[in-house]
Design a protein around this nucleic acid. Sequence first.
DNA 1: ACAATAAATATGCTATAGCATATTTTTATG
DNA 2: CATAAAAATATGCTATAGCATATTTATTGT
Lengths: 93, 93
Amino acid sequence: MNEIIKALKSARLEKKLKQSELGGKLGLPQSHISKIEQGATDPRLSTVTDMARLLDLELVLVPRAMLPAIQAMIRGEREEQTPRWQLDEEADR
Amino acid sequence: MNEIIKALKSARLEKKLKQSELGGKLGLPQSHISKIEQGATDPRLSTVTDMARLLDLELVLVPRAMLPAIQAMIRGEREEQTPRWQLDEEADR
DNA sequence: ACAATAAATATGCTATAGCATATTTTTATG
DNA sequence: CATAAAAATATGCTATAGCATATTTATTGT
Protein backbone atom coordinates (compact mmCIF):
# COMPACT_ATOMS: atom_id res chain seq x y z
CA MET A 1 0.00 0.00 0.00
CA ASN A 2 1.15 3.52 -0.84
CA GLU A 3 3.06 5.18 2.00
CA ILE A 4 1.44 8.53 1.50
CA ILE A 5 -2.06 7.17 1.59
CA LYS A 6 -1.22 5.20 4.72
CA ALA A 7 0.13 8.33 6.38
CA LEU A 8 -2.97 10.28 5.47
CA LYS A 9 -5.21 7.68 7.01
CA SER A 10 -3.13 7.61 10.19
CA ALA A 11 -3.27 11.39 10.37
CA ARG A 12 -7.03 11.36 10.02
CA LEU A 13 -7.40 8.84 12.82
CA GLU A 14 -4.90 10.76 14.95
CA LYS A 15 -7.11 13.81 14.62
CA LYS A 16 -10.16 11.67 15.40
CA LEU A 17 -11.96 12.62 12.25
CA LYS A 18 -14.53 10.39 10.61
CA GLN A 19 -14.25 9.74 6.87
CA SER A 20 -17.47 11.68 6.48
CA GLU A 21 -16.08 14.67 8.39
CA LEU A 22 -12.90 14.81 6.36
CA GLY A 23 -14.91 14.29 3.21
CA GLY A 24 -17.23 17.10 4.24
CA LYS A 25 -14.40 19.57 4.68
CA LEU A 26 -12.97 18.52 1.34
CA GLY A 27 -16.24 18.46 -0.51
CA LEU A 28 -15.90 14.78 -1.26
CA PRO A 29 -18.33 12.01 -0.38
CA GLN A 30 -17.35 9.64 2.41
CA SER A 31 -17.38 6.84 -0.14
CA HIS A 32 -14.55 8.47 -1.97
CA ILE A 33 -12.38 8.86 1.12
CA SER A 34 -12.97 5.19 1.71
CA LYS A 35 -11.81 4.26 -1.79
CA ILE A 36 -8.71 6.39 -1.47
CA GLU A 37 -7.79 4.91 1.91
CA GLN A 38 -8.39 1.42 0.54
CA GLY A 39 -6.09 2.07 -2.37
CA ALA A 40 -9.05 1.36 -4.63
CA THR A 41 -8.41 4.55 -6.54
CA ASP A 42 -5.40 6.54 -7.69
CA PRO A 43 -6.26 10.08 -6.57
CA ARG A 44 -5.19 13.23 -8.33
CA LEU A 45 -2.34 15.31 -7.01
CA SER A 46 -4.71 18.12 -5.99
CA THR A 47 -6.89 15.73 -4.03
CA VAL A 48 -3.91 14.45 -2.08
CA THR A 49 -2.50 17.90 -1.34
CA ASP A 50 -5.89 19.20 -0.22
CA MET A 51 -6.41 16.22 2.03
CA ALA A 52 -2.92 16.58 3.48
CA ARG A 53 -3.39 20.24 4.31
CA LEU A 54 -6.63 19.61 6.14
CA LEU A 55 -4.60 17.24 8.28
CA ASP A 56 -1.80 19.76 8.91
CA LEU A 57 0.55 17.99 6.55
CA GLU A 58 2.32 19.16 3.44
CA LEU A 59 3.41 17.16 0.43
CA VAL A 60 7.11 17.71 -0.24
CA LEU A 61 9.62 16.49 -2.80
CA VAL A 62 12.80 15.27 -1.13
CA PRO A 63 16.12 14.24 -2.71
CA ARG A 64 16.40 10.50 -2.18
CA ALA A 65 19.84 10.93 -0.63
CA MET A 66 18.47 12.88 2.32
CA LEU A 67 15.38 10.77 2.80
CA PRO A 68 16.66 8.83 5.84
CA ALA A 69 17.68 12.01 7.64
CA ILE A 70 14.35 13.65 7.01
CA GLN A 71 12.34 10.62 7.98
CA ALA A 72 14.28 10.42 11.22
CA MET A 73 13.52 14.07 11.84
CA ILE A 74 9.82 13.45 11.29
CA ARG A 75 9.79 10.38 13.51
CA GLY A 76 11.52 12.44 16.17
CA GLU A 77 8.38 14.41 16.60
CA ARG A 78 5.40 13.21 18.57
CA GLU A 79 7.25 10.17 19.96
CA GLU A 80 8.48 12.20 22.92
CA GLN A 81 5.57 10.78 24.89
CA THR A 82 7.23 7.46 25.68
CA PRO A 83 11.02 7.65 25.84
CA ARG A 84 12.79 5.27 23.53
CA TRP A 85 15.40 4.32 26.18
CA GLN A 86 15.99 4.49 29.91
CA LEU A 87 18.89 4.33 32.36
CA ASP A 88 19.38 0.96 34.01
CA GLU A 89 19.49 2.28 37.55
CA GLU A 90 16.78 4.37 39.09
CA ALA A 91 14.32 3.52 36.38
CA ASP A 92 10.79 4.55 37.25
CA ARG A 93 11.58 5.89 40.75
CA MET B 1 1.74 27.08 -10.12
CA ASN B 2 2.00 23.96 -8.01
CA GLU B 3 5.28 23.78 -6.09
CA ILE B 4 5.70 20.07 -6.66
CA ILE B 5 5.23 20.34 -10.39
CA LYS B 6 7.67 23.22 -10.50
CA ALA B 7 10.24 21.18 -8.59
CA LEU B 8 9.78 18.24 -10.93
CA LYS B 9 10.40 20.38 -13.95
CA SER B 10 13.53 21.90 -12.38
CA ALA B 11 14.79 18.44 -11.53
CA ARG B 12 14.28 17.27 -15.10
CA LEU B 13 16.20 20.23 -16.46
CA GLU B 14 18.91 19.76 -13.83
CA LYS B 15 19.38 16.22 -15.12
CA LYS B 16 19.37 17.53 -18.68
CA LEU B 17 16.55 15.29 -19.76
CA LYS B 18 14.19 16.17 -22.59
CA GLN B 19 10.47 15.84 -22.02
CA SER B 20 10.50 13.02 -24.54
CA GLU B 21 13.27 11.18 -22.67
CA LEU B 22 11.50 11.45 -19.32
CA GLY B 23 8.26 10.50 -20.98
CA GLY B 24 9.97 7.53 -22.60
CA LYS B 25 11.22 6.18 -19.28
CA LEU B 26 7.79 6.68 -17.78
CA GLY B 27 5.85 5.27 -20.68
CA LEU B 28 4.09 8.57 -21.25
CA PRO B 29 4.01 10.63 -24.43
CA GLN B 30 6.01 13.87 -24.48
CA SER B 31 2.75 15.73 -24.93
CA HIS B 32 1.63 14.56 -21.55
CA ILE B 33 4.79 15.66 -19.76
CA SER B 34 4.25 19.03 -21.36
CA LYS B 35 0.69 19.26 -20.06
CA ILE B 36 1.77 18.30 -16.57
CA GLU B 37 4.60 20.82 -16.50
CA GLN B 38 2.24 23.51 -17.82
CA GLY B 39 -0.24 22.78 -15.08
CA ALA B 40 -2.72 21.99 -17.81
CA THR B 41 -3.57 18.72 -16.15
CA ASP B 42 -3.97 17.46 -12.60
CA PRO B 43 -1.91 14.26 -12.63
CA ARG B 44 -2.60 11.18 -10.55
CA LEU B 45 -0.62 10.48 -7.43
CA SER B 46 1.06 7.48 -9.06
CA THR B 47 2.15 9.55 -12.03
CA VAL B 48 3.76 12.12 -9.77
CA THR B 49 5.54 9.55 -7.58
CA ASP B 50 6.84 7.68 -10.62
CA MET B 51 8.09 10.86 -12.18
CA ALA B 52 9.75 11.93 -8.94
CA ARG B 53 11.60 8.65 -8.53
CA LEU B 54 13.01 8.80 -12.03
CA LEU B 55 14.45 12.13 -10.99
CA ASP B 56 15.91 10.78 -7.71
CA LEU B 57 13.25 12.47 -5.64
CA GLU B 58 10.69 11.07 -3.25
CA LEU B 59 7.28 12.43 -2.37
CA VAL B 60 6.96 12.80 1.40
CA LEU B 61 4.27 13.97 3.81
CA VAL B 62 5.65 16.45 6.31
CA PRO B 63 3.99 17.95 9.41
CA ARG B 64 3.42 21.60 8.61
CA ALA B 65 5.19 22.62 11.82
CA MET B 66 8.51 21.21 10.65
CA LEU B 67 8.23 22.37 7.10
CA PRO B 68 10.64 25.32 7.44
CA ALA B 69 13.31 23.17 9.05
CA ILE B 70 13.03 20.52 6.37
CA GLN B 71 13.01 22.97 3.50
CA ALA B 72 16.13 24.59 4.92
CA MET B 73 17.74 21.18 5.06
CA ILE B 74 16.86 20.52 1.44
CA ARG B 75 18.10 23.93 0.29
CA GLY B 76 21.35 23.23 2.10
CA GLU B 77 22.15 20.57 -0.41
CA ARG B 78 23.44 21.21 -3.91
CA GLU B 79 23.98 24.93 -3.31
CA GLU B 80 27.59 24.28 -2.31
CA GLN B 81 28.56 25.49 -5.78
CA THR B 82 28.35 29.19 -4.94
CA PRO B 83 28.98 29.95 -1.28
CA ARG B 84 26.26 31.92 0.43
CA TRP B 85 28.79 34.12 2.35
CA GLN B 86 32.43 35.03 2.32
CA LEU B 87 35.06 36.54 4.68
CA ASP B 88 35.71 40.23 4.16
CA GLU B 89 39.48 39.90 3.95
CA GLU B 90 41.25 37.61 1.54
CA ALA B 91 38.18 37.13 -0.55
CA ASP B 92 38.93 35.47 -3.88
CA ARG B 93 42.70 35.27 -3.38
C1' DA C 1 -28.69 -9.33 21.66
C1' DC C 2 -30.14 -4.93 19.94
C1' DA C 3 -29.73 -0.28 18.37
C1' DA C 4 -26.96 3.32 16.74
C1' DT C 5 -23.04 4.97 14.36
C1' DA C 6 -19.06 4.53 11.32
C1' DA C 7 -17.00 2.44 7.57
C1' DA C 8 -16.93 -0.03 3.45
C1' DT C 9 -19.22 -1.29 -1.11
C1' DA C 10 -22.17 -0.74 -5.17
C1' DT C 11 -24.08 1.67 -9.20
C1' DG C 12 -24.82 4.95 -12.69
C1' DC C 13 -23.25 9.26 -14.32
C1' DT C 14 -19.97 13.20 -15.65
C1' DA C 15 -15.49 15.17 -15.96
C1' DT C 16 -10.97 14.61 -17.01
C1' DA C 17 -6.36 12.08 -17.00
C1' DG C 18 -3.83 9.70 -20.06
C1' DC C 19 -2.75 7.57 -24.85
C1' DA C 20 -1.49 8.04 -29.76
C1' DT C 21 -0.51 10.74 -33.45
C1' DA C 22 0.10 15.01 -35.86
C1' DT C 23 0.98 19.88 -36.15
C1' DT C 24 2.55 24.36 -34.63
C1' DT C 25 5.52 27.27 -32.08
C1' DT C 26 9.88 28.24 -29.69
C1' DT C 27 14.56 27.87 -28.87
C1' DA C 28 19.22 26.71 -30.21
C1' DT C 29 23.00 26.54 -33.63
C1' DG C 30 25.31 26.92 -37.91
C1' DC D 1 18.67 34.38 -41.21
C1' DA D 2 17.90 29.34 -42.09
C1' DT D 3 17.43 24.98 -40.34
C1' DA D 4 17.13 21.55 -36.87
C1' DA D 5 15.73 20.10 -32.47
C1' DA D 6 12.82 20.68 -28.45
C1' DA D 7 8.74 22.00 -26.51
C1' DA D 8 4.07 23.19 -26.64
C1' DT D 9 -0.72 22.47 -28.66
C1' DA D 10 -4.50 20.00 -30.91
C1' DT D 11 -7.72 16.13 -31.65
C1' DG D 12 -10.08 11.97 -31.07
C1' DC D 13 -10.30 8.08 -28.18
C1' DT D 14 -10.30 5.07 -23.80
C1' DA D 15 -9.83 4.48 -18.95
C1' DT D 16 -10.78 6.00 -14.63
C1' DA D 17 -11.27 9.66 -10.86
C1' DG D 18 -14.74 11.79 -8.67
C1' DC D 19 -19.88 12.80 -7.61
C1' DA D 20 -24.37 11.42 -5.72
C1' DT D 21 -27.10 8.28 -3.64
C1' DA D 22 -28.17 3.88 -1.61
C1' DT D 23 -27.08 -0.40 0.63
C1' DT D 24 -24.27 -3.55 3.31
C1' DT D 25 -21.07 -4.64 6.70
C1' DA D 26 -18.47 -3.81 10.74
C1' DT D 27 -17.97 -1.40 15.49
C1' DT D 28 -19.45 0.38 19.70
C1' DG D 29 -22.30 1.07 23.56
C1' DT D 30 -26.14 -0.26 26.53
